[in-house]
Write a protein that binds this DNA or RNA. Structure first.
Ligand SMILES: [Mn+2]
Ligand SMILES: [Mn+2]
Ligand SMILES: [Mn+2]
Ligand SMILES: [Mn+2]
Lengths: 218, 218
DNA sequence: TTAAATAATTAGATAAGACTAACAAATATA
DNA sequence: TATATTTGTTAGTCTTATCTAATTATTTAA
């Protein structure tokens, strides 16, 4: 049984290794806001538990076991977010912090029941895939809106950041998952875009925002 | 902000002082299954935080502040149990352990939402009163079934123990809150009773069971 | 009212998870 | 290549929450 602290390290490793599979102590330290020596000593502990491959001065890698257990924590997190939004009426900007705590509840029955009540959802409210009961996750390759061309017609499928402020900003623009977007023009200088969707015929969004929106081409 | 550990001590003190208002270190130690020296040192800490009145070799007493904060933890516990039963479909015997963990979630909005979805319930699934938002609880004085007389007609209103085994036993006998019970006879030797209710025209229940059932006289 | 039993405290140890300061290794830059 | 910067490790400290062993106070019983 992993402690709450261990679960948070595993989850962070999993999320950070999405890209290249390897993570540096420095990266992990910054992500968790925990100083490097503390991270080093936890890596030794997780290495003893066969959850992480750790060798001095080498990049960190989750083992198969570590990836599985991290996946199960992320499953609990995302199921919880979905439950909070769909069954309790929270907004997608309100759920991350609560899920950050509930993901550590030890009760298979509790999450099993959530899953059942939700009808076995495949994605969380931010469009992230929910790992299956074995901890495996199907990684879907969306494009960033910022990588699209003028004239493209796309569907907003996920967001890469779940901070309160960012999601509230999207709320004010009525941008939600499923929204069909057409790119009217791209400002070459700063990468900002003018887009149209629903009732919004001409909205201007900064590059920072475009990079956080994941879309599927229609 | 109290830690999970502190919250568990406060809750235990609150529950144990229901009777006389005072609790011994020994009692608390046994209830929490934590050795006496550990309890003593926590009492000093809670005393520094003005949550407990502690003096060497004197009985323990929650302060007004301590009683309020304990009440708020118990509120979270009981709201959770109610939510699990009413909104998620768990049986009353399945919810205590889960609530024991969820009661420590720090999110007023989460419990506010539960309360709202439940329609501001006054009692939990075991008939215990839910403290209000200020941590105050209205203590209702039910009688123990074991204190009733032959011939009495009563309504089962609460149970004093929430263990899995006890509640499963009640399930097998179809004894639930609200059940109208008539006491047919009492065995003077061991205090066991023969009772009738619903389709059950003659059930025999031990003294141990009768002491754990709280009833209202009709 | 003294002795025995029980309850409570003190002292000191341990484990988890965090930190800082000092040092070492690896990487980047001149 | 030599030096500077960045990254990572070691050593040692701190806090929280637990324990055991030894001691002291209180309560019960002889
Ligand atoms: Mn999240
Ligand atoms: Mn977390
Ligand atoms: Mn608890
Ligand atoms: Mn209860």
């Amino acid at each position: 049984m992993n402690s709450l602290t261990e679960e948070n390290y595993l989850k962070a490793l999993f999320n950070l290794s999405q890209e290249n599979g390897e993570v540096s102590v420095n990266e992990l330290s910054k992500h968790l806001q925990i100083k490097m020596p503390t991270v080093t000593s936890m890596m030794k502990k997780l290495s003893d538990k066969k959850l992480v491959n750790y060798e001095s001065y080498k990049p960190l890698k989750l083992t198969e076991k570590g990836r599985r257990e991290a996946g199960l924590v992320i499953r609990k997190h995302r199921l919880t977010e979905m439950f909070l939004v769909d069954k309790m009426g929270f907004g997608w900007e309100q759920v991350h912090e609560i899920a950050e705590q509930i993901e550590h509840i030890h009760s298979p029955e509790f999450f099993e029941k959530m899953d059942e009540l939700l009808g076995y959802p495949k994605f969380d409210p931010h469009g992230s895939p929910i790992p299956d009961k074995t901890g495996k996750v199907e990684w879907i390759h969306y494009s960033k809106l910022s990588d699209c061309k003028a004239g493209d017609a796309v569907k907003l499928s996920a967001v890469t950041h779940s901070s309160d402020e960012f999601l509230k900003f999207l709320n004010t623009r009525e941008l939600k998952l499923g929204t069909k977007i057409r790119i009217k023009s791209i400002e070459a200088f700063d990468g900002s875009m003018t887009i149209s969707y629903g009732k919004h015929l001409s909205e201007h969004v900064s590059c920072l925002v475009c990079e956080r929106l994941l879309v599927e081409k229609e």
